[in-house]
Write a protein that binds this DNA or RNA. Structure first.
Lengths: 334, 334
DNA sequence: CTGAAAGCGCTTACAG
DNA sequence: CTGAAAGCGCTTACAG
């Protein structure tokens, strides 16, 4: 491949001049510039970005680390990150960890060796020491979707409040036996969604029934089996709050497979509002997170930090989620 | 950040020795090695990968370009690519183009400047000249899911055959008015799926009815509206072959919204076999592509090419897809 | 086994 | 406006 020297030779100038002509930031004689451009075209010259990055100490690239790319939540966030990054001349490297913290550490290990100028993590957990370390080293880091208290900049929704409101909606529409099918509560986000559920019930004077608190965490998502087992034991809630849409899809299938109807027998509320959620049967009532917006904001914040502005006190930005009402909840009279 | 010089100074050796101790490929005195490692730990030294890549002329990284990360087909392929890459010490950079050829060219432009050692494209179209150019330059390139004739190495399924068999299954189960809801036929893959449909009907002596050939290409997927419009015009097929699962989900919704039942009134067959397809209502009969396997094979092929083996005649590998029978097709008597 | 030197391909302060 | 030189942080042939 052609190097800057080849171009210089062909254009009859020095490499420095080629570099300057290409940068566009420094005055170069018009005629010289044209000769350089001509040579660049003729040789199909592409500057070696490794050399450039080595010299300049930055690569205009950000690493986006997501836990599971098959969960449509993360592609939506990624879109927001990419669009903003691109506007600012940054490229994003998307890394999928499959919830495997070792895979994640491998990525971080490799990328922090000057590949990327900063990271956005959608994978934060309590045990994510590597994220804290990065931050302590002064490496630009922003979290999205999942956060770690106030220690690191983050863009998240108010999971507690959204969950509270979703459950309150079920109560207001006449439901009394509300089951929650939740994710991994070692993630703050699911813990907060559970708290929202609990407090909404308490606020309405309803009891927390342990048999109605279901755990569908883990790989392969166990929402189907868990709900089916509950139903077959004769425990019949009048509503289920599934804390993600993929879980809601499995919950609905389980209810139907037990010969019951959604929403006539059991109402269901989801969380996410995926692309396909409006097309399910019944169209799903669910909490819509502004995922694209969250990605976009996280990217903006990170780029500010990379550009050396305000890396002072970490800020946790809260964005609004809202309940989208479709047809999976029935109003019940008592 | 610490550099190799800092480590050398602290360990009382030359930078060359540090480099050699770290590489592990060259004999280094045991005691010297330990002093180096000690210094590496103490300074938390990470070699600058840009400098390394510049010197060595490779980065052990591959670029994976996908058209739409929100379509679950591509995450599945990406998994296969990542797992194999990782086994071989490669990192993968995942780039989402959103079907925007300009975005794609931007990525390729940036990554080919020595960021990556090779590319896997899941975005190939007839107009993808940039892919051909890359290949002509000698840049390692492999295609997956979508291919470009015999010009470039590729791993794909036999779309014609899979489609033929899906439609034949509908015919064998007693369907006579079979509608196809297809994607963008400027993609070879959808053209081939259409050919399979056509020939299966012809082989059974059934006519091709233009009103039953529906186009649901384009952004936001128009499967819902198109099918609904057909049904409202009074055109009632006894089966629909949707050439992707996301399309099948919209088709089913449209049929139900017209007061009809799946599969009692209309059978539906999809294509993809997504994670959630088994949980839909009804559980979807669909063509299962071995997506993970395809990604894995593409990665293996690319890494072979990068390692300088056999970049001779391009090979198009065909992998087997198979129909997964669930409950969205009803056997009809005549 | 180890060090000094050269060089990967750029950019940029320093002279002119 | 332009060139020669130095240097970014590594690796590796060349000596010893």
């Amino acid at each position: 491949m052609a190097t800057i020297k080849d171009v210089a030779k062909r254009a009859g100038v020095s490499p420095s001049t080629v570099s300057r002509a290409l940068s566009g930031k420094v005055p170069v004689d018009q005629e010289t510039r044209e000769r350089v451009m001509e040579a660049v075209r003729a040789l199909n010259y592409k500057p070696n970005i490794l050399a450039k990055g080595l010299k300049e100490g930055r690569t205009n690239t950000i690493g986006l680390i997501v836990p599971n790319i098959s969960n449509p939540v993360f592609p939506a966030v990624a879109r927001g990150v990419e669009d903003v990054a691109r506007e600012h001349g940054f490229t994003v490297i998307l890394c999928n960890t499959d919830e495997d913290i070792e895979a994640e550490k491998d990525y971080v290990e490799k990328l922090q060796k000057r590949w990327v100028d900063g990271f956005i993590f959608a994978t934060a957990r309590k045990e994510s020491h590597h994220i804290l370390q990065l931050k302590e080293k002064g490496f630009p880091v922003v979290l999205v979707v999942r956060h770690m208290g106030q220690a690191v900049d983050a863009v998240v929704i108010d999971n507690y409040k959204s969950s509270f409101e979703a459950v309150k909606y079920l109560i207001d529409t006449g439901h009394r036996k509300i089951c929650i099918v939740n994710g991994d509560t070692s993630l703050t986000l699911y813990k907060e969604r559970f708290e929202g559920y609990k407090h909404a019930l308490q606020a309405a004077g309803l009891p927390i029934t342990p048999e109605l608190v279901l755990d569908a965490a883990g790989r392969g998502d166990t929402g189907y089996e868990t709900v089916r087992a509950m139903l077959e034991k004769g425990m019949l809630p009048d509503a289920v709050f599934a804390t993600s849409d993929p879980r809601a899809i499995r919950v609905i299938r389980a209810i139907k497979d037990c010969g019951l109807s959604v929403p006539d027998d059991v109402s269901v509320v989801g969380f996410d509002d995926l692309d396909i959620s409006a097309f399910l049967d019944p169209p799903l009532t669910t909490v819509c997170q502004p995922l694209y917006e969250m990605g976009a904001r996280a990217a903006r914040r990170l780029i500010d930090i990379i550009n050396g502005e305000k890396y002072g006190q970490p800020k946790v930005e809260l964005v609004e989620a809202k309940l989208v009402i479709r047809k999976s909840v029935k109003v019940r009279e008592h």
